[in-house]
Design a protein around this nucleic acid. Structure first.
Length: 585
DNA sequence: GCCGTTTTCGGCCCGACTGTTTTCAGTCG
């Protein structure tokens, strides 16, 4: 059973306990456990079966036992009992905006409402307002929320580039407004999460009204809802909510920290503060003993007050960053400027939009020292495969351009398909002519875990495969990862010296932050690539760096922070040669 | 239900908003 499935089961159990009236802290304990399970890079099923689930933060004896029950029987016994007690539609009602377990439960007890349809009817016929605590407005809100849900609105999460694009445009415009002081993106976009529900912007300004005016006149903004001195809430034409909050410069740091989150991170910071007799809020850090409140212009001041070094936004997820910040062991996160080359991109030879020359020029303009041209291979369908003869000609063209271009090492590579049996779709003699080989899966995803894992490991054992491209095959919000035993893949990567890619395409970001962190901790070497299909998408590399940073990676973990000769020396074909030449006779 | 440089028991972040009620519970981020 996958981590996501186990996490879903415990998140659902939390919902059910909440409906059942359990104390909030117990419910929270289940939610926290679900989050820890979801973000574990290791297989929680394997961990639990080995009796080691309690190693996960927030998982104690009880939940560890329940994980084993779930694995053994396919269901947590407590969840089974509660599902018999509460109809499935009740949980759906708790997810409606404005509804939680208390209000859903009240309608169930008073009116027997157990589904969204029944709720709609009760609102339409004004039966709802007979229940204490519900009135005219509640009925209107129910109907509006149900309509929004029917239209597929509500709950849509944008990929990071969409949210960042909106946020960066707004920030740039607001910084130009006379009297504006500081303007920053906050929220999940600042943490560089894979998806964002809305765009949060924090500002300080001498004239807040001018900022709100400027926001409402921006091209991206369709309408401004509520607005005032403290900020505004607006909607973009694409349907994203933008939240602008304005404070005095003296507490800019407090609001920025508060709105950057994550919720879990803030909760942990505040718990740590309470232990020191302090209370952290969006307005300042108050001191019980002194009876004073310290407003913080910068986030650094807040973290210093609670005894920690500054924590980069990408790490603020409640995954051990507080302990590291207390102990002074936070990683020096890899930066996009540290990448010296890109080793996965496409040209018109397969499905790219630009020529080798154009890609080389664009790589030079980015300041790269090297670029590998890795078009798709012989069996890549979609009418853009590269036959063995075409690959030979492509290698020649790469060599010619390499000779012409100053300051860039151009590598002749290929993104080779891993066939269902784990073999590659060019013969070894041709592969040996290439400087760089990415092996990826593009077909036959629906194999069982055992077969698919063996298939990928077989490819990794090929002496010429340098890198596994987009190793889990997931597409964010669209396609689940392949059924891989990821820890086996990491073991094989370490054993064979095969690099694992963080594919920076923002639809992929594959490896994800959890897998990348596990791989690095296990001693595997990672590499960040754009997988660009044109000159414009080389810049996508930033999203791969975002994932790497969220995975706690330093430049040491990322192979392409090295020069090409250094990287060349550490890959497995060089190591094999080295061990062959130093072997005693 | 989890957890411990206060604790193996007794805590567990903080504040705004909403709709309802008349002082606040529930929801949200």
């Amino acid at each position: 059973m996958r981590n996501a499935e186990i996490a879903d089961a415990f998140a659902e159990l939390a919902d059910l306990y909440e409906l059942d009236g359990a104390i909030v802290h117990r419910v929270l304990a289940y939610r926290n456990a679900a989050t820890a399970i979801r973000s574990s890079g290791r297989s929680v099923a394997e961990l639990a079966q080995a009796g080691r689930a309690e190693e996960l933060p927030g998982v104690g004896k009880t939940i560890a036992e329940k994980i084993v029950d779930l694995l053994d029987t396919g269901e947590v016994p407590a969840a089974k009992r509660l599902k018999e007690k509460f109809p499935a539609g009740l949980v759906e009602i708790t997810r409606l905006p404005g509804f939680g377990p208390k209000r859903a439960r009240k309608l169930y007890d008073e009116l027997g409402i157990a589904s969204l349809d029944e709720l709609r009817r009760a609102a339409e016929t004004h039966v709802l307002r007979a229940v204490p605590g519900f009135g005219r407005k509640a009925e209107e809100n129910v109907l509006a929320a149900l309509e929004a849900a029917d239209n597929g609105q509500g709950g849509r999460r944008a990929l990071l580039p969409e949210a960042l694009g909106i946020g960066e445009e707004i920030v740039a415009a607001l910084r130009e407004v006379p009297g504006s002081d500081r303007v920053e993106i906050a929220g999940s976009a600042r943490r560089r999460a894979e998806t964002c529900k809305d765009v949060d912007i924090v500002a300080s300004a001498a004239d807040p009204a001018a900022l709100v005016d400027a926001l409402s006149s921006l091209r991206v903004i369709a309408e401004v809802g509520t607005s005032g001195e403290a900020g505004a809430r607006a909607l973009t034409h694409s349907g994203m909510t933008v939240e602008l909050r304005i404070v005095s410069p003296s507490s800019f740091g407090n609001l920025l920290q508060h709105l950057t989150g994550s919720g879990r991170h803030n909760e942990l910071v505040r718990t740590e503060a309470v232990r020191r007799g302090l209370h952290v809020s969006e307005y300042g850090v108050s001191d019980d003993a002194a009876g004073t409140t310290h407003a913080c212009a910068t986030e650094e001041e807040i973290y210093a007050l609670v005894g920690m070094s500054y924590i980069e936004p990408e790490l603020r997820e409640g995954r051990g960053e507080l302990e590291a910040a207390r102990g002074g062991t936070l990683p020096q996160l890899v930066r996009v400027e540290e990448l010296r080359g890109d080793l996965h991109c496409h040209t018109v030879a397969s499905d790219g939009r630009n020529t080798i020359e154009q890609m080389a020029a664009a790589a030079l303009a980015r300041g790269y020292e090297y670029l590998a041209i890795t078009d798709h291979s012989a069996t890549h369908g979609f009418g853009n495969h590269v036959s063995p003869d075409e690959l030979r000609r492509q290698i020649e063209r790469v060599r010619e351009v390499d000779a012409q271009v100053e300051g860039l090492t151009l590598l002749a590579g290929s993104e080779v398909n891993v066939l269902p049996d784990g073999s590659l779709d060019y013969d070894d003699a041709l592969l040996a002519e290439l400087d760089w080989i990415v092996a990826s899966l593009h077909t036959s995803f629906r194999m069982g875990e055992r077969e698919l894992t063996a298939r990928m490991i077989h490819a990794m054992e090929h002496p010429l495969v340098d890198l596994i491209g987009h190793p889990t095959g997931r597409l964010i919000e669209r396609r689940e990862p392949y059924a891989l035993a990821f820890e086996r893949i990491v073991e094989a990567a370490v054993r064979t010296g095969t690099l694992l890619e963080i594919n920076a395409n923002p639809d992929r970001r594959d490896l994800n932050e959890h897998n990348a962190r596990l791989a690095a901790e296990s001693g595997a070497m990672l590499l960040i690539d754009s997988d660009a299909h044109g000159v414009n998408t080389l810049a996508n590399i930033r999203y791969g760096v975002d994932t790497a940073r969220r995975a706690w990676l330093t430049r040491e973990h990322v192979a392409n922070t090295r020069s090409w000769p250094e990287l060349d020396a550490l890959r497995k074909r060089s190591r094999a040669q080295a061990s062959a030449t130093t072997r005693p006779c």
